[in-house]
């Protein structure tokens, strides 16, 4: 078990280094020059622009050879410094991301968890009731097949534009400052509900279908059949089937949670919700090396943590996996 953990951790560390290196490299291979973008923003005399250009290039360390930039990057990274945003100059990248993170989490965590619970319940129910299944299954397939962008826009249009129940942009009204009051919380929730709902719905179908199929598969498996030959109550057979069917769903959940940090780019763009996904698109549009890098580092960390959790959870839940990793499983 210990050996298993050690190898896993090593693999994850290597993966992290590799992924971050690529993440560092990619923006630098993109066409265009971010400093030019920045300079053009402060536009002015061509003369001062040139001075500014060379100053900023130096300040961001972009005049140095690549290997040195790479080296500096890791040193800074280990100090918790992800650089300065070019597009939101002079805000540090870490601060930008830190203030965006709660918005992403606030939408994604609840929507993933809620759709997971609801989807699994619906799926398990459908697996048991033939009649219900024939109604639910097509609905779930429809939901699952609906492109998210389309769904998001429909929701925004219908509830935001036609019914005018909910606002369709931002995390709270422009006039407000974040603070703790009923007014603000209410306003925040109003902005929150549509992006939440869109993500909830779009994920629901997948969970439900997955769970339904898994439960049916388990109910038809040999161990269920053997239980039947022993004349046990249906409740016991269902209990076993459910428990075994939920295992892959738990893996799926953990993997989904890994994307939490990444935010859901589409959601955040459709509803102009200021999470990491939104920041990422802005960063890309503005060729903000450091911000792009920072976003991806967050995403990488999120995905790796999620995968690691999956590994641990699975080992804890499934004796078969434990066994395949050698020895003691009791």
């Amino acid at each position: 078990m210990k050996k298993y953990l050690r190898t896993k951790i090593l693999v994850y560390v290597l993966t992290f280094i590799f992924a971050v290196t690529i993440d560092w490299l990619i923006p630098r291979l993109m066409p265009g020059n971010p400093i030019l973008v920045l300079v053009s923003r402060f536009s002015g005399l061509p003369e001062s622009a040139r001075v500014m250009y060379s100053y900023l290039t130096k300040a961001f360390g972009l005049d140095q050879p690549l290997w040195k930039q790479y080296f500096n990057f890791w040193i800074a990274f280990l100090k918790g410094d992800l650089g300065i945003s070019i597009y939101l100059y002079p805000k540090p990248v870490l601060d930008v991301l830190k203030s965006a993170l709660p918005y992403s989490l606030g939408i994604l965590l609840p929507s993933i968890l809620a759709s997971w619970f609801a989807g699994n319940s619906i799926g398990a129910l459908a697996a048991r009731r033939r009649r219900l299944d024939s109604i639910l299954l097509p609905i779930m397939y429809f939901i699952n097949g609906a492109p998210y962008l389309w769904l998001g826009i429909i929701l925004a249009y219908y509830f935001g534009v036609v019914l005018r129940w909910f606002p369709i942009a931002g995390a709270y009204s422009f006039g407000l400052r974040p603070h703790l009051s009923w007014l603000f919380v209410g306003n925040f929730l109003k902005h929150w509900i549509l992006p939440f709902l869109s993500l909830f719905i779009v994920q629901l179908g997948g969970w439900a279908i997955g769970m339904r199929n898994m439960v049916i598969y388990e109910l038809e498996s040999n161990y269920s059949r053997f239980l039947e030959t022993l004349g046990v109550k249906n409740s016991l057979i269902r209990k076993y089937a459910f428990r075994n069917a939920i295992l892959p769903q738990i893996t799926g959940l953990a993997l989904q949670l890994g994307t939490v940090i990444a935010g859901q780019v589409t959601t955040e763009v459709v509803f102009s919700y200021p999470g990491i996904g939104y920041i990422l698109t802005q960063a890309i549009l503005n060729q903000d090396y450091f911000l792009i890098q920072g976003c991806f580092i967050f995403i990488i960390i999120g995905v790796l943590i999620a995968n690691f959790t999956v590994d641990l959870v699975y080992v804890a839940l499934d004796p078969r996996i434990r066994y395949s990793y050698g020895g003691e499983i009791s």
Partner: peptide
Amino acid sequence: RMRDYRFKKVSIIPQYAMDALNPTRK
């Protein structure tokens, strides 16, 4: 109605005996 008879009166060692047990229960 057959439920009562299973296990108590008639039992089977099925052809699939190798995977007749629930894999996740001791």
